[in-house]
Structure formats: C-alpha cells, structure tokens
Design a protein around this nucleic acid. Structure first.
Length: 717
RNA sequence: GCCGAGGUAGCUCAGUGGCAGAGCAACCGCCUUGUAAGCGGUAGGUCGUGGGUUCAAUCCCCACCCUCGGCUCCA
C-alpha cells in the first residue's frame, strides 16, 4: 500500500478529486458523500461500466452509477438475476442455468431442470425465500478473469455455460453472449459465495445486501437461444427496484395496466366478445362496441374524403393467381389462410388489400395528370396467426385496415410523404395521442429488390419528411420490407406504453409485378411508385389501444353513451324521451331512464362500469321548464365541440337542450373533478317519492370528488 | 406451433367420485332526496366439447376446442 501517493480522477461536472493511489470507485463515492456511497451500485470509468471495487487510475473520468438511475436499476436487476440463479441451483440440484439478463423493468433467467421438471407457483415462493436469505447474507460479488480453458473446467457440468464460453472465444458470439461473458480471449466470472459462480461481464453491485426489493413474477417457457427447434427452457421473470417504494409503484402500475386491459373492459362494457364457437382470434361486435367502432370509422372516412382519397371496395376472397402475381404466395404463404378449391380455381381469403388496389389502378391507362392517385378502403383481411400468439384485439385473425395505396411519380414522392406524415399525426392527435416516436427502416441489401438509386431516392424522401417535421427518429438499419423503406409511428399511451400504430411504406415491387404504368408529360410510359399506408393500422387493434389509453373512459365523441338523461320523476318521462330523440337527430347517442319504476337499475350504477363509457358523462336531470345553470351551459359548449369529431359546427341546439334542465353535471376530460355544481333536485319545492333506481341514478350523477392515482383520467361517478 | 396454467351462473371465483355454491349483476317487492354497495325475496348452470373408466364423473383418464402467461412468428 503506497498510501502516500495520490491520484486525480475527473468527475462528470468537470471537477477533479484527489484520491489515494489504491482507490476504487467505492472510495470515490464515499469521498464525495455518504449518501452517494450508499446509493452507488457501479461506476462508469472512461465510458465503461465497472464494479465499484475496480481500482482507479490517475486521469480516469469517473461517474458513479446510483441505484435510482436507469443504468443503476439495470445493474440491480442483473445482480438480482444472479441471486435468483444461485437460489435455483441450490434448491434444484442438477439444474442447468443458461442466461439471465436485465430487461425493461426487471430480469429473467432461463433454466433447464433435471428430469424435465417445471417450476410451479410454490417454487417461486421458495425461490424468493432463498433469495432473501442470500440478500441477508450480504455476499460480495467478486469478479475474476480466467482463460477459456479454465472457465470450461469450472463450468464442466453446465453445458449451456460451456456453449457460451465456446461461442464467445471462437468469435461467434452475438451481443447476448457477450453480455454474459465479456468476450475476448479471457472470460470474466463473478463469484458471490463458495457455492455460486456465474459467467458474467458485469458490473454487479458490490454485495447481495444491496439488493432485496424484488418480486418473482411468472414462469414461462422459452427456447434456448430463441430457436424454436432448440430445447425448451424454463424461464422465471422477476422485477427489481432500488427501493421498496419503487417496487410498490411498479406493482401498482401493473395493476393499473391490468385494470385497463381491453379484454376486461370489452367484457365489462359489453363492447364485443370472442365466442369460442366462432374460433380463436375472431371477434363479434356488440351494439355498444359497434357504435364506437362506427364513430371511429366514420371519422376516418371523413378525414380521407377531405384528404383527397377515393373510396374503393374489394372482395374478401381472391383467386390464387392474384396472390401469385403479387408475390404473397411466394413470400407470405405461412401467414395466409389455407386455400379453398372452387369450380373455377383456387381461392384464398385476402391477407392484404394492395393487390386488389393494383388491379383497380391497372384497369385502364393512367395519365400523370391523375397522380397521385389515392385509393382508400376499410378493408378486412384475414391472416393466419399461430394459436399461441392470439391476444384479444391486439393480435387477431380477421381485422380491418384503414388501408390506402397511393400511386405517384418519383417526383411527387417527397411531397406526398411529407403531407402524409402530417395527415397521420393530425388523425392520431384527434384520437387523443400526442406523444409520438418515429422509426425509419432502411434497406437490408441481403433481403431486398430494386436498384440502389430507387432505394436512395425513397429513403431520402422519407428522411426528408421526418426532418421537415423536425422530429427525432431512430433508424432501423435493414428493417425495411424487401420492397422498400418505411416510416413507423409509435404512440405513447396514458400510462407510458408504446404502441406501433401507423406505417408508411414505399414500394417499387408491386408496381413492377403488376406492370403498373402511367403516361407522363413526355408521352412515355413510366412506372409509378406505390405507397402503402395505414394510420390506425388495424381498426380492431386501434380500438383496443384506445380503450386501454382511456381506461375505458372514451372521449365523448367516441362514447357509446354520450349523454344520459334521467327524469327527476316519472312525470317528466315524456320530455326525457323528446330530448333523447332530438339528440339522436343530431347524431348524439343518449339514453334515458327507462319508463317504469325499478327498471332504471339497468343503468348498472352500482358497479360504475356504465360510467366508464365516456370520460365526459353529462347527466341531466330532466324537467320541462328551463331553469338552467349557466355554468352547465358553458361547459356544454365545450363538450359540444368535441362531440362530433371535434368539429366546429356542432349540433347547434345541444347546449340549449342540455342546459334547459334543472341540473346537469359534467366531468371534464380529466375525468374526476366536477366542473359545475349539481343543482340538486332538493331545490324544487315538492319532491314526489322516487324509487330506488332514481335515487341510485342521482347518486351516480355526483362525481366522486377525490381524485386518486387509480381513478385519474376516468369518470368515476 | 412449443412450454406452463386454466375453462363451474351475466361477471369474479369457491367446491366435491354420490341433490351444484358464494359475492356482485339481473328480476320482483319494500324503503325513499346526497357523495362508492339501504332491506327482503325470486330466478339463473349440458360444470368448454366429445369419448373412456365407474353402480355413479363437474371431479379420474384420453382427444379436441377456447382462454391466459411466455417463447417463436408478425408481410
């Protein structure tokens, strides 16, 4: 120990710190502050993540990674995965362990258990127990490096580890392997007790005592190396956080996501169902779901009509020859439904609409004056999805695309894409999304067709559109379809999840295959470029995303019940009915209290699911004479604007109609806070007896005035 | 397709080799003016489907269908 010598290290803020010559990042953290020392889990030294115990050299640029950062949680999770593997190996002698990376929000580890045994939920409890013991024991993670031969000997009874070592040292490793081991001509291992050692690149927390806020979530099967022909392993998923509070928050978020699950909401709200008799991945839409879907589709049609698109319709079946021409039978046969033999040939349900749109284009000679030609269809397609992949509306076997194919010249391409992108965003915004991310997928030279010039031109057109928009985007190198580059637009929903919705794809392949042409200004024949684009993607899936985004509380213009009108007494039922039919004439969906006593409980008031049908539930206690609350009137003005596609020309009489009542109550888009006080029926001089249901209706008319995290964004009356 | 878990009332779920259960919802009645469940009653099931074992199957066995969690796939 040369305690006399000192080193200088540089810190992220540009300052530097003098430390003893044998100092580590842990020493540095302590020197900066005890809080930092406690929160530290690893360090970044000269751009590389290292253990806190790694020695520092003079001139090193050092940043301490704390547990509450993304990088810190990543380290925690990876370390927790090791602890889990240690627990499993102890509890299940003979178990083989494979890889266990940190993932978003957690980690997993894959095992092979002796005798093909599988994990049960009880196993998770005992593994958790053992993990807690290991945490309690506060075992240090000790890194060492060794030659591959030595590592092979160390892991002689662990075939998967040996395979990783061999792959890494033979240079055949992919990123996953390198993450495990470190790569190079030596491999690194971490030992955190006499009995447990694992291959790992690190870094790890200094000791297991730094861990502890974790939960094992579920068991799943997973293929070794993701190869479905390879052995099936047992995977345990877990989550791990820097504190008990953070773990708790995560679990609450999961609960919230579960509450928003579109499959649950669709059942609760009576929107649609998946009858087993119908077959997997096929839905039937109930009246309440169908009206919402119709509103979505109406809006889509309206926008397309105004946006220069022409509507077309095409059949659900097509002769196999069509799909031979389009290439679908060559490239995507596995994703298509099996053929039907018919008297005049073989037919397939269509997996895409584009071939048929090409036929429409090709039906006659086209002039450059017609371009860009934009054909639009809400086209229902059928794709064979493997049984295990079906998932509510999100992954379904029959669905409807808001599909369009734009035929244009090369010169038009850039402008067309640019306006298209604005069109896409404008539509998505109207549905309530405002957080977008963009990905530009570029050519994979191995799997693509077309000339370099075409690709360059199309790719730069897409890139220009994104740059003109002034947005950040990522590049998916080689992720393009074989026929052309594309832009994908992801949206982030109310609870932060990303969904890929819109896609804009350039295509040179189909115009070629179908021999599409136009006559240019030069009186020569040219080949148009085709753009495939879908905004909502699949209407069904988009519906599911919307439902989860709004947690069931759809905005008024999409709500299956937009206005609810309740007579104060049965004496006013006639007027209620008049209001309902007037609103219906304006295209506003409203319901009223049923005409007889006792049946009003059909409102399903007690479990509140009826009130999830819109985030703005306007409940009107209806009485013929006007004695309106002006504030109710103001609020209804606002409501009215969003009532029909957010148009500025709303049903003119709505405000007056709704305001012409003794009381009304509006929940704003925030969902919870009442924006206008209810004028209670109390105010009237004499109240006839009301039945149970009416009283319940009243109760339901009052919004709950305590917004909580679990109710935010939802009308919880 | 693969691994695992499931399918019982409209919903959420108990349960048992021998008459099928609860809560909520529904329906009928009672009560009646306030911020998340007033009171009483009634009805509701081919226990996913088809085979098998058994005196007897919702329960045990087999096959299939569907769902859920993953894996793989996703033009």
């Amino acid at each position: 120990m040369s305690s006399a010598a000192l080193i200088d290290v540089r810190l992220p803020d540009g300052s530097s710190k003098q430390l003893p010559a044998d100092a580590t990042s842990a020493v540095l953290a302590s020197a900066i502050g005890s809080r930092l020392a406690k929160a530290a889990v690893a360090a970044v030294v000269n751009g590389h993540e290292t253990d806190l115990s790694a020695p520092l050299a003079s001139g090193d640029q050092v940043a301490i990674i704390t547990a509450d950062s993304d990088a810190g949680r990543h380290v925690l999770r990876h370390s927790t995965a090791h602890v889990m593997a240690q627990a499993v190996l102890q509890l299940f002698p003979g178990a083989k362990f494979t890889i266990g990376p940190a993932i978003e929000d957690g980690f997993y580890y894959d095992f092979e258990l002796p005798g093909g045994r599988t994990f049960t939920d009880d196993d998770l409890a005992s593994i958790t127990q053992r993990m807690q013991e290991i945490v309690q024991a506060d075992q240090p993670f000790v890194r060492s490096e060794m030659a591959p031969a030595q590592a092979l000997a160390l892991f002689a009874d662990q075939p998967y580890k040996c395979e990783i070592i061999q792959r890494v040292t033979s240079g055949a490793a992919d990123d996953g392997d390198a993450g495990e081991v470190g790569g190079g001509d030596s491999v690194s291992v971490y030992r955190n007790s006499d009995s447990f050692v694992d291959l790992c690149r690190g870094p790890h927390v200094p000791s297991t005592g730094k861990l502890g806020h974790f939960a094992l979530m579920k068991v799943a099967g997973a293929y070794w190396r993701g190869n479905e022909k390879g052995p099936m392993l047992q995977r345990i998923y877990g989550t791990a956080w820097e504190s008990k509070a953070a773990l708790q928050e995560h679990l609450v978020r999961l609960e919230e996501a579960e509450k928003r699950d579109h499959r649950r909401l669709a059942t609760e709200m009576d929107l649609l169902s998946f009858p087993p008799e119908l077959g997997g991945g096929l839905a039937v839409w109930h009246p309440k779901g169908a009206i919402v879907r119709k509103l979505m589709e109406d809006y889509s049609r309206e926008r397309h009509q105004n946006g220069g698109y022409q509507f077309v319709y095409t059949p659900h079946l097509a002769n196999a020859k069509l799909f031979e021409t389009s290439g679908h039978l060559d490239f995507y046969k596995d994703g298509m439904y099996p053929p039907m033999e018919m008297d005049n040939g073989t037919y397939y349900p269509k997996p895409m609409n584009c071939p048929m749109h090409c036929l429409i284009y090709r039906d006659r000679q086209r002039s450059y004056r017609e371009l860009p030609l934009r054909l639009f269809e809400l086209g229902t397609v059928y794709r064979y999805e493997r049984a295990g992949t079906l998932h509510g509306l999100m992954r379904i076997r029959g669905f409807t695309q808001d599909d369009s194919h734009i035929f244009c010249t090369q010169e038009q391409l850039a402008d067309e894409i640019r306006s298209l992108l604005n069109f896409v965003l404008s539509v998505l915004r109207r549905f309530g999304f405002d957080d977008f991310t963009y990905k530009l997928s570029t050519r994979d030279p191995q799997k693509s067709i077309g000339t370099d010039e075409m690709w360059d031109k199309a790719t730069s057109a897409l890139r220009n559109a994104l740059e003109r928009l002034g947005v950040q985007y990522t590049i998916g190198e080689g992720d393009a379809a074989f026929y052309g580059p594309k832009i994908d637009v992801d949206v982030r929903d109310a609870i932060g999840r990303k969904w890929q919705l819109s896609t804009i794809q350039a295509d040179f392949q189909l115009p070629e295959r179908f021999g599409l042409e136009y006559v240019g200004a030069d009186n020569q024949r040219h080949r148009p470029i085709m753009l495939h684009r879908a905004l909502l993607g699949s209407v069904e899936r988009f519906f599911g995303v919307l439902l989860e985004h709004y947690g069931g509380s759809l905005p008024t213009w999409l709500a299956p019940v937009q206005v609810r009108i309740l007579p104060v007494t049965s004496a006013h039922e006639a007027h209620t009915a008049t209001l309902v039919s007037q609103l219906a004439g304006d295209g506003i969906a409203s319901t009223r209290s049923p005409p007889t006593n006792n049946s009003a409980s059909a409102f399903v008031l007690q479990n509140s699911s009826a009130f999830r049908m819109c985030s703005w539930s306007v409940t009107t206690m209806c009485k013929p004479e006007p004695s309106a609350s002006t504030r109710a009137g103001e609020k209804c003005n606002e409501m009215r604007r969003s009532m029909r596609f957010g148009r500025d020309s709303p049903p003119t009489s709505l405000t007056a109609r709704v305001a012409n009542t003794t009381c009304s109550n509006v929940c704003g888009p925030g969902g919870v806070r009442s924006t206008c006080r209810v004028l209670a029926p109390k105010a009237t001089t004499r109240q006839p007896a009301v039945n149970r249901s009416l009283r319940a209706s009243w109760r339901a008319g009052y919004p709950t005035m305590r917004p909580t995290s679990s109710t935010a964004g939802r009308c919880v009356s």
